[in-house]
Amino acid sequence: MLIEIASLAKTYQLGEIQVPALKTVDLKIGKNEYVAIMGPSGSGKSTLMNILGCLDVPSSGKYILNEHDVSTMDDNQLAFIRNKEIGFVFQTFNLLSRANALHNVELPLIYNGTPRNERRQMAEQALDRVGLGDRKTHKPNELSGGQRQRVAIARALINNPSIILADEPTGNLDSKTGEEIMRIFTDLHQAGNTIILVTHEEYIARHAKRIIRLFDGFIQSDETAA
């Protein structure tokens, strides 16, 4: 199993108040799966994604990623996992505004010390792969929303991660552009990548092979399409 989650819970502390966002979630996801996570607003989708992406730590429970027990890792080990194993695509793109497309894409390689020439080459290939070969030197504010999300996808896949996580990747895009982005995810899945994405749209979720529905911090349903 690529991902194994057992009795995972996450409670936010808001001053005096405790806000339970996830309540005992158990989940297994295998290699080369294509999973969509759905559910009403506030049901814990982003919370789950952030934990899967090692951006946040659970309050309790176990998370095993690629046979590593992530729940016991320290900051540096988590940074390493985020760099090597995970490619995160955000709803709001999260690109460095001062850096051009190429630099944004090669950033993960900088942190693992990939030599310059190799890095450049890999970043260019990744940009070509998402169809942005001709926008390499553009800064985020010189790109359209769809193009920005492509840069973010190129960045997510540059290290050839075990999973690509996407939290509402089409949330800020019109449906036509969203459809284009989804085509990239489908291609990536067909090329052997594992993809987990959060969406509110049924037509987006339909690209996935498996749909997990969250409700109020629980997994309500988990269906795999035939």
Partner: peptide
């Protein structure tokens, strides 16, 4: 802060 978050999300360590 956002930039720091982005860098950490893609693998920057504390010492980085």
């Amino acid at each position: 802060t956002r930039e720091i978050g982005i860098r950490k999300a893609i693998g920057a360590t504390r010492s980085n």
